[in-house]
Design a protein around this nucleic acid. Structure first.
Length: 750
RNA sequence: UGGGGUAUCGCCAAGCGGUAAGGCACUAGUUUUUGGUACUGGUAUUCGGGGGUUCGAAUCCCUCUACCCCAUCCA
C-alpha cells in the first residue's frame, strides 16, 4: 500500500483510532435483480478490501425488499462474482428478508413514538402533496391519525387485509424539507407478491430507506459504503437510526463515485436492453462489462482487482479509459501464460528449396518470463504466415517480408521472397520463398540481418480453430443507446490455424498468440474437435505497426469561454455599508463587499472596531478567518468574542506575533475560547525578528539542502518558499517570515 | 429554480498554507528472434474562471461558471 489512503480508508482509520468501533464491519449489499458488472466489482473491492485491510469483516447481503423484481438466480450470480474475485464473506450470505420481523418491530416502535403514520392517499395525490424542489409539500389529512389507529391499520396492512397501494406507512419528518427525501418518506408499502425467499408470509415490504439502515445496524455494520446517488438518502438513514434511539455503536453512511468506463454502459437497464434485444448473446457475452462477460472473455480476477485498486476511490463523477483495464489484463497475463503461434489470416507459403520435414523445440515462454516449458513445432516445405506479414509494396518503416526484405520465421529459418502467385483478380493466393539453411534459430551463421521474426504454422499439422475477435461494444465514448453500437464489435474467424501443441498438449487455457494478443479457450463452446478461442485483448502496438489508424481527428473545439454570471445587486443598506467601508475605513472593495453583504460578519466587525481602531487589519481577519467559523454557526455560538479578535490584531500590529502565528492562535481561540494573549504566553509564540538569531538557522537549512540550492540558483525561484518554510519549521513558526524571506533571498544570492 | 455533491495533465488520482505524487495514455531512446515485455528519459510555471487575505495559496475567504444527484408505493 502506498503512502496515501483513499478518503474512505482515512475515515475508517480515524474512527478506529477514536475508538468509535471495536472492529470495522462493512457489507456489500446488492439487490438481487440483475447480474453483477464491473461497477459491482469496484464496490466489492472497496467493501471487502477495507474489511481485509483493517482486519474486520464484510458481509454479503442481498437487499431483497422488492419481491416483484428479485430472483434467486441473481443471488447465485452475485455470490459467484464475489467468490470469483477471491473474497470471502463473513458467515453465510445475509438477506434483508431475514430481518423483516425485526424491521417490522422497529416500524411499530416508530408508530408508537408518533413518528410514523399510515397514509391512505393514492399515488397521484401523494406526488402532488410532496411539492416540488422549490415549493414545500403538504401533509395529507391522514397524518393526523392516532397512534392506536395507525397501529391498527398497520396491523391490517400486514395481515393482507388491503389491496396493493391502498395504504402506506410513512415517516413523519418534514413535508417542507429542502431535501425532498425527507418529505415524509415511505417506510412500508403493500405488495401481495410472492417473495423468492420469504414466500407469502408478508403482504407488506419495507422500503430501501427503512430497511437498509436497520439491516446495517442489525448486522453491526460500522461503515455503510454506497454510491453518490444515495447522498440525499443519508439524512433518512440518520433519522431512522436516531429516532429509534438504538444502542451505539451505529453505522454511518459514506458515499463514493460509481465506476464508469468509456465505450460501454453500466446501468442495469441498458445492460438488460442489450441482452433482451439480442444485440449481445446473453449476460456472459464477452463484450459486456458484466462479471460473467469478463470471465467468459478470459479476464482474470487479479486483473479486475488490480484495475479497481488502480482507479482509486473519490467523490468526483468520472469515466475511466478502457485502456486502463486493458493494461491490467495484459500486465497480468504477460507473466503468466504460454506463447504459441497462430495464424489468423493465413497466406500459403512454399519454401521452394526445402525438402522433408523437421521438428523444432521451442520454449513456451520468452526470455523475460521465468517459467519453464517447451513444445515441438513441426516444420516443412509448406507453411502459413499471416497475410499482413507480407507486403508487395510496403510503406516506409514496414519490418516484415517484402520482395526485397527477408524475414525470420520465429524459432526457424530466415526466408527470402521469390514469387507471388495471384488469382484472376490479382489477389495473392500464395507466395514462394527460399530459405537459408544456415540461418536456423539458435545456430545462425548466415549473417543475414532481419528486422522482424514472424509467427507461422506448418500446413499438415496445423489445427483449424475458430477465433472470436472482440472489439468495443459501442463506437461512442459515452453511448446513449442502441444507435451507438459498434457494428464490428465481434468478428468470427473460422479459418484460423494454430500450432498443434495448443490442442494436443493443452498447456493452459489462456495463451498469448505471438504478436497478436491474449486469447482464451472459450469455456462454453470449445471442444477438441472444434476449438474456439476468445480474444481477450490485443498486444500493445507501437505506433509504427499500427496501420494508418484514423488519427482521431484533433477536434479543434473552440476554447470554452467562461461566462461570468451576474452578481446579485446589493440592497440599499448593504450599499451604504459598502460605501462607508470603502470611503471612510479605506477597506479594499472586495473585503468591503464581503463584509457589507453579510450581516453577521459586519456586526462582528463593527463590534471589534470598538475595541481597536484598526479597520483594515480587523476587516481582513474577519472576512477571512472569522467568516469561516460563522459559516456554520451564529455569533452567539462562537467561543471567542470580537474583543478577542481585536486583541489578536493588536498583537500583530505591534509585531509581537506574525500573521502566521496569528492564524495559529486564532485556531486555538476557535477551539478553546481562550484569550489570545494567554494563548501566546502559554505557548511562547512570540515572534523572532532578530536577524542574528535567524541567520544561523538559515545557514543550517541551506547546508542541509545543497540540491535545492543548486536548483534555485539554476532558476527555480519557487524554491524560495521551500527554504522559508524550512526555516519557519525549525523555529516552530516563530521566526518572522518577512525577515526570513529577506534573509533567505540574500543568502541564496551569494 | 430549493437542497445535496463535484471540478488538479488526454483519462483516473494524490495533495489539507511552504519544491504540483503516482498510474493509464502519449512520446523519445536502450535491450529484445513478439513492432510485446523490461529499463531510462520527456510530458501541468499551474490546479474550472475572477478577485481577496498572506512573506508565500491547488490548499483560507468572497464571487461567478460548468457538470452530477433528489419531486418511483425502485434500490
Amino acid at each position: 500500500m502506498s503512502e496515501y489512503k483513499d478518503f474512505l480508508r482515512t475515515i475508517v482509520e480515524e474512527d478506529l483510532k477514536a475508538g468509535k468501533y471495536k472492529e470495522v464491519v462493512t457489507r456489500f449489499p446488492p439487490e438481487p435483480n440483475g447480474f453483477p458488472h464491473i461497477g459491482h466489482a469496484k464496490s466489492i473491492c472497496i467493501n471487502f478490501g477495507i474489511a481485509k485491510d483493517y482486519k474486520g469483516h464484510c458481509n454479503l447481503r442481498m437487499d431483497d425488499t422488492n419481491p416483484t423484481t428479485e430472483d434467486t438466480r441473481y443471488v447465485e450470480a452475485l455470490k459467484d462474482a464475489v467468490q470469483w474475485l477471491g473474497f470471502e464473506w463473513d458467515n453465510s450470505v445475509r438477506f434483508t428478508s431475514d430481518y423483516f420481523s425485526q424491521i417490522h418491530g422497529y416500524a411499530i416502535e416508530l408508530i408508537k413514538m408518533g413518528k410514523a403514520y399510515v397514509d391512505s392517499v393514492d399515488e397521484e395525490e401523494m406526488r402532488e402533496l410532496r411539492g416540488t424542489v422549490t415549493e414545500a409539500g403538504k401533509r395529507s389529512k391522514y397524518a393526523e391519525r392516532s397512534v392506536e389507529e395507525n397501529l391498527d391499520l398497520f396491523e391490517c396492512m400486514k395481515n393482507g387485509e388491503f389491496k396493493d397501494g391502498e395504504h402506506v406507512l410513512r415517516a413523519k419528518i418534514d413535508m417542507g424539507a429542502a431535501n425532498m427525501k425527507l418529505r415524509d418518506p415511505l417506510l412500508y408499502r403493500i405488495r401481495h407478491a410472492h417473495h423468492f425467499r420469504a414466500g407469502d408470509a408478508w403482504a407488506i415490504y419495507p422500503m430501501y430507506d427503512f430497511a437498509h439502515c436497520l439491516s446495517d445496524y442489525i448486522e453491526g455494520v460500522s461503515h455503510s459504503i454506497c454510491t453518490l446517488e444515495f447522498e440525499n438518502n443519508r439524512d433518512i438513514y440518520d433519522w431512522v437510526l436516531d429516532s429509534l434511539q438504538l444502542q451505539p455503536p451505529r453505522p454511518y453512511q459514506h458515499e463514493f463515485a460509481r465506476l464508469n468506463i468509456n465505450y460501454t454502459v453500466m446501468s442495469k437497464r441498458k445492460l438488460l436492453e442489450l441482452v433482451e434485444t439480442g444485440v449481445v448473446d446473453g449476460w456472459d457475452d464477452p463484450r459486456l462489462p458484466t462479471i460473467e462477460g469478463y470471465k467468459r472473455r478470459g479476464y482474470t480476477p487479479e486483473s479486475i482487482i488490480n484495475f479497481c485498486d488502480g482507479i482509486g476511490i473519490a467523490k468526483a463523477n468520472s469515466m475511466v479509459d478502457v485502456a486502463q483495464l486493458e493494461f491490467c489484463i495484459r500486465d497480468d497475463l504477460n507473466t503468466k501464460v504460454p506463447r504459441v503461434m497462430a495464424v489468423l489470416d493465413p497466406l500459403k507459403v512454399t519454401i521452394t528449396n526445402y525438402d522433408g520435414a523437421e521438428e523444432i523445440e521451442a520454449s513456451y515462454y520468452p526470455h523475460d518470463v521465468p517459467k519453464e516449458g517447451t513444445r515441438i513445432l513441426p516444420f516443412s516445405r509448406e507453411i502459413y504466415i499471416d497475410r499482413a506479414d507480407f507486403s508487395e509494396s510496403p510503406e516506409k518503416g514496414y519490418f516484415r517480408l517484402t520482395p526485397t526484405q527477408s524475414v525470420r520465421l520465429k524459432y526457424a529459418y530466415i526466408i527470402t521472397f521469390e514469387e507471388a502467385i495471384k488469382d484472376a483478380k490479382g489477389n495473392i493466393v500464395e507466395i514462394k520463398v527460399s530459405y537459408h539453411p544456415d540461418s536456423k534459430s539458435g545456430e545462425d551463421t548466415s549473417g543475414i540481418k532481419v528486422k522482424s521474426a514472424i509467427q507461422w504454422v506448418e500446413t499438415n499439422t496445423a489445427k483449424n480453430v475458430e477465433v472470436r475477435v472482440y472489439d468495443r461494444l459501442f463506437k461512442n465514448e459515452a453511448p446513449e443507446g442502441l444507435e451507438d453500437i459498434n457494428p464490428d464489435s465481434l468478428k468470427v474467424i473460422k479459418t484460423a490455424l494454430i500450432e498443434p501443441s495448443v490442442i494436443t498438449d493443452k498447456p493452459d487455457v489462456r495463451f498469448q498468440f505471438e504478436r497478436e494478443g491474449y486469447f482464451y479457450a472459450d469455456p462454453v463452446d470449445y471442444t477438441d474437435e472444434k476449438p474456439v478461442f476468445n480474444k481477450i485483448v490485443a498486444l500493445k502496438e507501437s505506433s509504427a505497426k499500427k496501420k494508418k489508424t484514423p488519427q482521431q481527428a484533433p477536434k479543434d473545439e473552440p476554447k470554452k469561454v467562461q461566462i461570468d454570471g451576474e452578481v446579485v445587486p446589493m440592497s440599499e443598506e448593504e450599499q451604504a455599508l459598502f460605501d462607508k467601508y470603502t470611503n471612510e475605513l479605506k477597506l479594499n472593495s472586495e473585503v468591503a463587499n464581503t463584509l457589507a453583504r453579510d450581516a453577521k460578519l459586519s456586526s462582528f466587525y463593527e463590534e471589534a472596531l470598538q475595541t481597536l481602531d484598526s479597520p483594515v487589519a480587523i476587516a481582513n481577519i474577519v472576512t477571512n478567518d472569522v467568516a469561516r467559523e460563522l459559516k456554520q454557526v451564529e455569533i452567539s455560538e462562537l467561543k471567542f468574542t470580537a474583543k478577542d479578535v481585536a486583541e489578536l490584531v493588536k498583537m500583530v500590529n505591534e509585531e509581537l506575533i506574525s500573521s502566521k502565528i496569528a492564524k495559529q492562535v486564532f485556531e486555538e481561540m476557535v477551539k478553546s475560547g481562550e484569550n489570545p494573549t494567554s494563548i501566546v504566553e502559554a505557548k511562547g509564540l512570540v515572534q523572532i525578528s532578530d536577524p542574528e538569531m535567524i541567520a544561523p538557522i538559515i545557514e543550517e537549512v541551506i547546508a542541509k539542502n545543497p540540491d535545492n540550492v543548486e536548483k534555485f540558483k539554476a532558476g527555480n525561484t519557487k524554491l524560495l518558499g521551500f527554504f522559508v518554510g524550512q526555516v519557519l519549521k525549525a523555529t516552530q513558526g516563530k521566526a518572522n517570515p518577512k525577515v526570513v524571506n529577506a534573509l533567505v533571498t540574500q543568502a541564496l544570492k551569494v
